[in-house]
Design a protein around this nucleic acid. Structure first.
Lengths: 335, 335
DNA sequence: CACCGTTTCTACAACGTTGTAGGCAACGTT
DNA sequence: AACGTTGCCTACAACGTTGTAGAAACGGTG
């Protein structure tokens, strides 16, 4: 039931190549021939075989976006923007979930997607620069700062400055015992390290002591981890008057734990997050946060990939920075 | 820098086909030949060209999942389960966002994905049975009930009964003026219609009047729509003592609007949702909801697709039902 | 009218893979 | 010694597409 160029050609009484020319918009085809071919195409409901086209042309028109987890809203929102940005280039986006596991990330980066996609936009959690260096070929754009001085183009935001600014916001409101939730071992998360650096920068600049007991680790950054970390802080006896959570889902979990402990936000404890996911605009209270320009991040990533595909693949790697802004909402207001 | 079977063959001193046989695990290859070939494969870091393989075999090993929006958490969570379930069959999942727009859905269902994927798991919003009937070939499994008596296998949950049960839960708690948020024109959303039917069934069975002014429409089912619908209900003067929102994001928006109006949940107004997304387990208050077994839905969908691919493509279409349960949390408790 | 450039179309080969058919040894059986 | 069987391997063709080369028809120019 599926037709090929040959079927269309026979029906229209022309050669296979002429049909191919019509399909590809080649100019030198007589109008009446073109019409006949188009009619045959319509009658047979012909659509080209992308695998064959790819085999011949070396391009698939498909790029992949690999993220740790789709049900972390930040990545889902980012995915939507990447799909939109890629559409402008006529690309379809294959979305891949790595689970943040190094093995799976390696497979995605090098294996399964091979020869099926033209390029890859990759948000790695566990992958090392070495893993990436061992890859041949497939053009790639990295998101975030897990892999430094990597062998690929990258889009980042200035995590350190953003984290400093949101912490300064808390300090300006009069908070003095500011906790941080989401720290990780250095080899796990570069984002965590950078955001922690911004946090300590702000404290230092304001003449506040860095108190290690106020910093709570969180290996994953889900709501449950944020709630657990907040509970741990509260039961440990330290009484913060504000909390900087390294992402919004952690913050939403923290809000929940504070609520369960009978503490009011922001009156008793102010809370800020990072990412500006949609939930934070409707949570109770709404969440103050750092809002990276996800649309811009997606655009830049797609653009870098396009340049790499069309241009010099051996050109030196580029690193572009996307803007962000502070989004101040109820969880820090009214004090 | 990318090698082909031919390169491996030359290096190992065998024919191209022998390398192919090694790659595909064909039994009749002498151990030492096999070893030589494998060594060459490793040295050249050879990986097969999937497009060529597909062209030859007619299979890609890729299936697509098309959903309206990834940043609706329900779909993101579902996507994760589908990816997991598909992995058991060695399939990669290409995730596609349709935006719920009919044109885009048609494109996805028939066009771009063509010849690139073996099959499609599809959660349509706007597509009609006609649109689907016009498709040739690609095996497909539908999720949800937008397209009835469609030309494809389908996985559903019993929306009517589930909606009735969650409404009965509210009635049992003593609520008498139960609002509904999320109704839609019949041609837009079958889920809306079925959930509304379950709601009215429950009212009727309890001898409660159906009050049209208590039913608020919502064309999309996002948080913002839920908040707007709730505000509209409140300002219209009707004073519900409970609200059944047709999905969780609507409910989270409604929670927000109630909070802004100074009403307590569940003391003043009880709220229930539908979908059991993760947000609802951490919201303030946590959200009572209908919890469809998303893992099972994904499994069934993948299974149906596998059967369709391996078996008789002309066999009569099947419809499977996935289980659900009520998840009672704070937004209806304590009354 | 001979010539040349342009337009329109076609035949062929190639992209990298695998199914089919078959060849050649080596072995066991008669 | 002749024969069939099995194990191992190779040559060839084909999947559906498009780039290249070139043929045929056409129009304009000297």
């Amino acid at each position: 039931m599926r037709h090929r160029l040959k079927d269309v050609a026979e029906r229209a009484g022309v050669s296979v190549k002429t049909v191919s020319n019509v399909v590809n918009g080649y100019v030198h085809v007589r109008p009446d021939t073109r019409a006949r071919v188009e009619e045959a195409i319509a009658e047979l409901n012909y659509r080209p075989n992308l695998s064959a086209r790819h085999l011949r042309k070396g391009r698939t028109g498909v790029i992949a976006l690999a993220v740790p987890e789709l049900d972390i809203p930040y990545f889902a929102e980012l995915a939507r923007h990447v799909v939109t940005a890629a559409a402008a280039y006529g690309w379809t986006v294959l979305i891949d979930q790595t689970g943040g596991r190094r093995e799976q990330e390696r497979v995605v980066a090098s294996g399964i997607t091979d020869h099926l996609i033209d390029g890859l936009i990759f948000s790695p959690l566990a992958l090392t620069a070495e893993d990436l260096a061992s890859l041949d070929g497939t053009p790639m754009v990295l998101l975030g700062e897990r892999v430094e001085h990597g062998p690929a183009d990258r889009v980042v935001i200035d995590n350190v400055t953003a984290a400093r600014e949101i912490t300064e916001h808390l300090i300006k409101l009069g908070h003095r015992r500011i906790a941080a939730i989401g720290s990780q071992r250095t080899d796990e998360g570069a984002s965590a390290r950078l955001r922690l650096a911004g946090y300590t920068d702000a404290l230092r600049a304001a003449g506040l002591d860095y108190d290690e007991t106020l910093v709570a680790p969180a290996s994953a950054w889900h709501r449950a981890d944020g709630a657990a970390a907040m509970r741990a802080l509260l039961t440990s006896g330290v009484r913060p008057d504000a909390v900087f959570c390294f992402n919004d889902t952690l913050a939403l979990g923290a809000l929940r734990a504070l609520h369960e402990a009978g503490l009011r936000v922001p009156e008793d404890v102010a809370v800020v997050g990072f990412d500006d996911i949609e939930d934070g605009r409707f949570s109770i209270p709404t969440l103050s946060t750092v809002a990276p320009d996800k649309e811009r991040i997606a655009q830049l990533a797609v653009e870098l990939l396009a340049n790499r595909l069309d241009g010099d693949r051996a050109a030196p790697t580029k690193e572009l920075s996307a803007p962000y802004r502070l989004e101040i909402r109820e969880s820090t207001q009214g004090r």
